[in-house]
Simulated scan of single mutants.
Amino acid sequence: MEKLNKVSLCAGVLVSLLTICAAVDTIAANQTLKDGDTIVSAGDNFELGFFSPNNSNNRYLGIWYKRISTGTIVWVSNKENPIRNTSGVFKLSSDGRLLVLSGGDTVIWESKSAYSSRVYPVAQLLDTGNLVVRDESSIDQENIIWQSRPSNDICVRYGLCGPYGTCSNNNSPACSCLQGFETKRPQEWFILDWSGGCRRIMSLDCNYGEAFNKISGMKLPDTRLNSWYNVSMTIGECEMACKRNCSCTAYASLDINSGCLAWFGDLEDMRENSGGRDLYVKISASRLTDSQSYKPMNKKVIKVVLSTSVSFLVVCLIVALYTWRKKKRSSILIRKG
């Protein structure tokens, strides 16, 4: 009897362990996921949990590549409403809604769902990086209540190219460094992990001189990270303010033609956008290209230079001719004498 009890106990523990392992990618209705806990897709490719971007204390619920140690984010739920501390909780309600809560009961973000009373919902992180809410009895696409809009637009992934990196769907690879910057970890970029971003080729030196590289058609960097604005400044005043502050890394107009928006840290989450804005990134003045530093000479200056050069040549010819004739006359007199 005692042996039977031990067998039953072992079987129960084994079943419990198997249940836990099987549910590592799933959240059941009314189950909560606290800040610091995560779920992982079955193939160990993606992970879901709370995270903070570089140089920020804000917390977001997101999905990232688990195999990349630095965490390339592919989806963010509460992008417009960050949590200011680690009190965040993620849960699935019994009516099929995903909820991000702060401080216990304050709803920060929620999903919409086509709920049916006949459905018993579970949330599952698939190995494609897609988070789905489905009926726990089926994984058919027809029974998916909600899912997180995988897109062919790779640049929608938050911070894909890391600090000072910019993304373009028209380029291969999609990520590249801004002018004046280079990849921080080239080996990782080779395997398409761009999350390490870029670094300055030449560091800034306020005492030496700095300039701004104008980049047109850009989605501006994340303004939630170390940014500042002033609605009354002109774009010229904005440039001077950024130039005087050693910590300022870039600026742009707040609106199309007025105001000042400045950044004071790494520039994150940038992408090329045909309808985008002009961004002025601070770099060392010596890193400007010849085409940027070259300024055509004034026409009056060109005329003065040309006229001076011609006059100098004429004078040289006259002097040379006079010297030649004088030498020739001297030689004739010597022969006659």
Rank of each mutant, 00 (worst) to 15 (best):
V305D: 13
N298L: 08
S331C: 09
Y322W: 14
S291C: 10
L160F: 08
W109I: 06
K112L: 11
R59Y: 06
G43S: 09
G12S: 03
F50E: 08
L131T: 02
I144H: 00
S311N: 15
N207I: 06
R185Y: 13
L131E: 02
R84G: 15
T106I: 09
D105F: 00
L14M: 07
N213W: 14
P173H: 09
Q124A: 09
D127G: 07
L220Y: 08
G217R: 05
P53V: 03
I256P: 08
Y251K: 02
N207L: 12
C198P: 03
N273M: 12
S293F: 06
M240C: 14
P53W: 01
A23Y: 04
P163A: 09
G62L: 03
I235F: 10
V13Y: 06
W109H: 05
N55G: 07
C21T: 14
N45V: 11
D140P: 01
D37K: 14
Y120N: 09
D222R: 02
W109Q: 05
G276H: 11
S102A: 14
S56A: 11
E47V: 09
M297A: 12
A262N: 06
E182F: 05
A250W: 02
N170E: 14
G162S: 05
T72F: 07
I332Q: 15
C198D: 05
W64A: 01
K66H: 01
G259N: 07
V132Y: 01
I215Q: 08
S286Q: 13
K112V: 08
V15I: 13
K326M: 14
K243C: 10
S93V: 02
K91M: 12
V310S: 13
S203G: 15
V305P: 03
K66G: 00
L267H: 04
I154E: 08
Q124I: 12
G96I: 05
A262V: 03
G209E: 07
P221S: 06
M240A: 15
S216M: 12
E110D: 11
A250C: 07
V40Y: 04
G12V: 04
S69F: 05
M297L: 15
Y60L: 05
Y120I: 10
S69N: 00
R149G: 13
C175I: 10
S137G: 01
A241K: 06
S284I: 00
S274T: 13
S148L: 00
L126Q: 13
S41G: 08
P173M: 09
T323P: 00
I63H: 01
L4R: 05
C260T: 11
C177I: 04
N85Y: 04
V107Q: 04
A11S: 08
L9N: 00
V315L: 15
S258E: 14
V89M: 09
M297I: 14
P296A: 09
E142N: 12
W194T: 11
G71W: 04
T249I: 09
K327W: 12
I27Q: 04
M240L: 15
N230T: 10
V89W: 01
I27H: 05
K336Q: 14
S117W: 12
S172A: 13
K327D: 14
